[in-house]
Design a binder for these strands. Structure first.
Length: 237
DNA sequence: CTGGGGATGGGGCCC
DNA sequence: AGGGCCCCATCCCCA
């Protein structure tokens, strides 16, 4: 089933969203998540790197947080990069509902759609309701996008699996064709998905992106850090 | 149990 | 305004 579309930040009744846990402390049914949250990294390594000192968090000889740049600047990361979030310039367009800001009014306008899913923002204005589920949207465009997650118009001609967006189908088709256009510059591996290459590149890094704030151990994936935390590093201390 | 790969979905930006 | 693309996040599975 497709995950909630455009409304994830307002309806978190499904699985825990760890990205949210990084930015806010939300209690989830069951309560165990908040315990994990307590020991979750508040910053990625590139952020932590600003805080690292040889005294407090010694790194392996010759290594530093900026080693990551050699990964992010490789061929898989042209154009928009995974640069650390930068301070918001004054000339940006801030959202009045949250702390985010955007480089253009259009960007801000689209973002603000995401604030309209909780019901509060639509009450006084015209609401576009999905006929397949109770969700409401403030614009027809947002609703159309949402409806795709019900109709799944992009169908794989090989296996019949359906997707909401064409590029999702494209990625899926690669699982049939075996095409792997994204190759690692450090080893011979190739990947069908750029994100998976990016995750793989982390395995070549000695200082990885996700760091335990308690033991300073770094992990290539957030899920691994999560497991590490659940296994007791942070809890036992 | 841990680390890593495969697959997939959502948000956001650019054109 | 909409489509395409990218990044990030997450789940599942396997070695």
């Amino acid at each position: 089933m497709p995950r909630s579309f455009l409304v994830k930040k307002c309806f978190t009744s499904k699985k825990p969203n760890y990205s949210e846990l990084e930015s806010q402390t939300e209690s989830y049914p069951g309560g165990e998540i908040s315990a994990v949250t307590a020991c979750y990294p508040s910053a990625l390594v590139w952020d932590v790197g600003l805080l690292l000192t040889p005294e407090t968090n010694p790194l392996p000889e010759g290594l530093g947080p900026m080693d990551l740049t050699s990964l992010s600047s490789s061929e898989e990361d042209e154009g928009r990069s995974s640069d650390p979030p930068s301070p918001t310039p004054a000339e940006r367009f801030p959202c009045t509902c949250c702390s985010k800001s955007y480089s253009s009014p259009a960007g801000l306008s689209r973002h603000q759609l995401s604030h309209c899913q909780g019901g509060e923002g639509i009450a006084n204005s015209r609401a576009f309701r999905c006929k397949h589920c109770p969700k409401e949207y403030s614009s027809l465009g947002a609703l159309k996008m949402h409806i795709r997650s019900h109709t799944l118009p992009c169908v794989c001609s090989t296996c019949g699996k359906a997707f909401s967006r064409p590029w999702l189908l494209q990625g899926h088709i690669r699982t049939h064709t075996g095409e792997r256009p994204f190759s690692c510059t450090h080893c011979s591996r190739a990947f069908a998905d750029r994100s998976n290459l990016r995750a793989h590149l982390q395995t070549h890094a000695e200082v990885k992106k996700y760091q335990c704030t308690t033991c300073s151990r770094t992990f290539s994936r957030m899920s691994l850090l999560h497991k590490h935390s659940e296994a007791g590093c942070c809890v036992s201390s």
